[in-house]
Simulated scan of single mutants.
Amino acid sequence: MTQINRAAIVGGSHGNELTGVYLVKKFQQYPNLVNRSTFETLVLLGNPKAIEKGRRYIDKDLNRCFTHQGLQNSLLSSYEDIRAKEIQQLLHPRNQPFVDVIIDLHSTTANMGLSLLLSNMHPLLLQLAAHLSSINPLVKVYFHQQLRGSGFLRSMCELGFVIEVGAVPQGVLDAELFRQTEQLVYAVLDYFERHNQGKISQKNSTLTLYQYTGVIDYPRNERGEIEAMIHPQLQFRDYEPLNPGEPLFLTFEGKDVFYDGVSTVYPIFINEAAYYEKGIAMHLTQKQLIHDY
């Protein structure tokens, strides 16, 4: 059995995602809320300078800086590269093993509700996801495989994952989403506590998983400028089916652009504000039922 000895809760890797920022500040002020008897819980703010400025980042996206190469490269001097090395040291103190769990708190302008983002299919993560979605039907589970050290904070340990909530504008707190995220964090910690105590009964439950298949960019002209918007019929319909031939974008001239795929997909991160600069209009997923984990 995988024993959880140390867990880390990180909020504010993006400085304008305030749900995680203020949850971490609350946990720092009231550590008993996240303390559990069988493991230590570390809470930290990911990007303090960006939080202070109310920006996503200062020089570059911190949540892409945790690559093996970048963390070992002493010549990288951007604020986020330096901060990534500091976080690595906090998560892996000298003469101690790396934390067993990373809970990375994020919010999105897309209508993702309460989402768990998994980077691997570790049985304990799948069991946790099945438990959380069984006690709260609002929880959705998104699987996007990432190799260890791929750049995302969650990829730094086998039991790393993201809690992503939305829709909420950047730089804004939504009280209901804050409350729901807080309760989800407690449910995660309680599950790991019971796991350590051997109190988890194995159930043959079915887990609904949305598996990453790719991304779609906005239509753009030769100068790289977008030429269309998310279609009104698609906006805020994260995790809902998109069928071939259904509207995808609406041009500024009012012309519909249709989805030309060959099978039904389930878009998520639809119209995420932070992804405009990354050339991403949405992620596409396939809906799967997982039985054996």
Rank of each mutant, 00 (worst) to 15 (best):
I268A: 13
V10W: 01
Y210R: 03
Y275T: 14
P244R: 08
Q96V: 04
I280D: 11
I135M: 13
K278L: 15
I230E: 05
E277S: 14
N16V: 12
F39A: 08
Y259R: 13
G46M: 14
S78Q: 14
L42Q: 03
G15H: 03
A175E: 07
E193S: 01
L138S: 08
H106Y: 09
I135L: 14
F252G: 11
P93S: 12
Q69S: 08
V21F: 07
E225A: 10
D238L: 04
L91N: 09
M1Q: 10
I280A: 03
V101S: 01
N111Y: 07
R55A: 14
P137W: 01
F152R: 15
T41V: 01
T41K: 03
L153Q: 13
A175N: 15
F178P: 09
E86P: 00
E253H: 00
S74H: 13
M282F: 14
F249E: 03
S13W: 07
I102S: 05
K140E: 12
I82Q: 15
N95H: 06
T213E: 09
L45A: 12
D256M: 01
N63M: 15
G149K: 00
L23P: 12
S74R: 15
I9S: 00
L62H: 15
I9G: 08
S77G: 00
E222M: 00
E17T: 05
G171T: 13
D190S: 02
N111T: 14
Q29L: 02
R94N: 07
G113T: 00
Y276P: 02
Q96Y: 11
R220L: 11
E52N: 04
K60Q: 03
A129T: 09
T206W: 11
D238M: 00
P137S: 04
R220N: 10
F98I: 04
K278C: 15
T206P: 10
G254M: 10
C65Q: 05
C65Y: 08
L184D: 01
S201F: 11
Q69A: 15
T285M: 09
A228C: 08
I268K: 08
F161H: 00
K278A: 15
K60P: 00
P123D: 08
M229E: 06
Q288S: 14
E158W: 01
I51E: 07
V257A: 02
N136Y: 00
Y191P: 03
N243A: 12
R223Y: 06
N95C: 05
N204K: 05
L42D: 00
